[in-house]
Design a protein around this nucleic acid. Structure first.
Length: 438
DNA sequence: AGCACA
């Protein structure tokens, strides 16, 4: 192709071309308006609008050079200038011989959106959160997610381009609501159209979903037991198990202290670290066990149960993305129980004495898992075969945690629970000592 | 009011 760079950028008289260059167009002139303008002179085969820094220039390409010449000739001698929306447009032959339309799939409206999730935690955004966000605009048929150099991306399939467009217009450049992303930093959505019209989803997995086909087989990699993820048959529940639990406390009528949490969660195995923080006006806590199995047991046993009788301080548990909490300082909100004799900052005696703490009666509903259900006084006694509980019964009954290896002396909660549930358990004893981090 | 896009 002949190089145009050897010519000046423009001249006052251009050699004829079937491409015309238009300027002084009204803002956001449409292709349709350009076609209307050129149609009287011939067949408009291509257009390009919103050109130039001011986006007020455009190109019209005719099928034949003579048609372009006809248009230029007409307006060269016409008393009425070429107009779009009453605005005079100036036209001349372009210095190009054809319009190269770089219009990519990203610009052509379609029913499938290409979504790039931006942010340091972008790849932690679950497909369920994406589904929730996009479902606000219509039925989401399918979602696939993948990693590209552009980052973490998803394809979201709607029924039609109109629905997809409404989602794109509303969400492009905006961030996923923070309440949908506990623990995660801001995640911004960049949305274009995809060239796809129907995504191919072979399995329900943590990477892809087909919401039109609930009977689609679950990917082997998403089946419970492989240690990676669980997925329900409804294709909706997806949880990645973790050794760290995120606890949200609902209906917090009574103060829930670090020590109370430690006591409650220690019933299922050694608690390594706890971090408490306020989130969305409620109290949340991260509780770290040495292994995922212990966390799973604790979650199953405690989910939905109340720390105190009467529906107070109801626990809602999920798996955290964290695997090892970074406890910068031991205080009344966070503690690393793996460090012996930690310097406790802001150590303050518990405000609530045992008498002011409501008795921890049985949970509103009995624990379901019989293996971990404290059904009787006897069941609350630490069993000798209970892996990590080696304390003599008498001691364990009053101060169940005191003799545990991971529980250094001097860190006992001041308010050991009277009547605290003490489930039997069979978690093998992990090696706490070697597991210290940071 | 004067030539895009990679």
């Amino acid at each position: 192709m002949a190089s145009v760079s050897s010519q000046p950028q423009f001249r006052y008289t251009q050699p004829p071309s079937k491409v015309l260059h238009l300027r002084n167009l009204p803002w956001e002139c449409t292709e349709e308006e350009l076609i209307e303008l050129g149609k009287p002179f011939g067949k408009v085969v291509n257009t390009k609008c919103n050109v130039g820094a001011n986006r007020n220039q455009a190109f019209i390409e005719f099928a034949d050079l003579n048609q372009a010449i006809a248009m230029i000739s007409y307006y060269a001698s016409s008393s009425e200038p070429a107009q779009v929306r009453g605005k005079t447009v100036y036209l001349q032959y372009s210095n190009r011989q054809e319009i190269v339309n770089n219009k990519t799939a990203a610009d052509v409206p379609g029913n499938v959106l290409l979504v790039t999730i931006e942010g340091s935690d972008a790849r932690l955004v679950s497909i369920d959160v994406l589904h929730l966000v996009f479902s606000a605009f219509g039925f989401v048929h399918k979602i696939t997610t993948f990693e590209k150099t552009a980052g973490f991306q998803a394809l979201v399939q709607f029924s039609d381009a109109e629905t997809a467009t409404s989602a794109k217009d509303a969400l492009d450049g905006r961030s996923i609501p923070r309440y949908l992303l506990p623990e995660l930093g801001p995640c911004t959505l960049r949305i274009t159209y995809s060239g796809h019209s129907d995504l191919s989803v072979k399995f329900q997995s943590h990477r892809s979903r087909d919401y039109t086909n609930p009977y689609l087989p679950v990917a082997p990699s998403a089946v419970e037991g492989n240690g990676q993820a669980m997925i329900g048959l409804d294709g909706k529940r997806l949880e990645t198990e973790s050794n760290v639990l995120l606890a949200s406390i609902e209906n917090m009528q009574y103060a829930v202290t670090l020590d109370v949490l430690h006591m409650v969660f220690s019933a299922f195995g050694p608690v390594q670290k706890i971090a408490m923080f306020d989130k969305n006006g409620g109290l949340q806590a991260l509780i770290q066990y040495p292994d995922t199995q212990t966390a799973v047991v604790a979650k199953e046993a405690l989910e939905g149960h109340c720390i105190y009788d009467g529906g107070f301080c109801k626990l809602h548990l999920s798996y955290s993305r964290h695997t090892d909490l970074s406890i910068k300082v031991n205080n009344d909100r966070s503690r690393d129980y793996t460090i012996p004799n930690p310097p406790v900052v802001n150590a303050q005696p518990s405000i609530l004495g045992p008498q002011s703490v409501p008795m921890m009666g049985p949970p509103a509903q009995p624990y379901n898992g019989s293996q971990y259900a404290p059904m009787s006084e006897q069941a609350m006694m630490p069993q000798s075969q209970a892996g990590w509980g080696t304390a003599p019964p008498a001691v364990a009954q009053s101060m169940p945690m005191q003799n545990n290896v991971y529980m250094p002396p001097g860190t006992m909660p001041p308010q050991m629970a009277p009547g605290m549930q003490f489930p039997n358990h069979s978690t093998p004893q992990p090696t706490y000592g070697s597991d210290r981090t940071q």
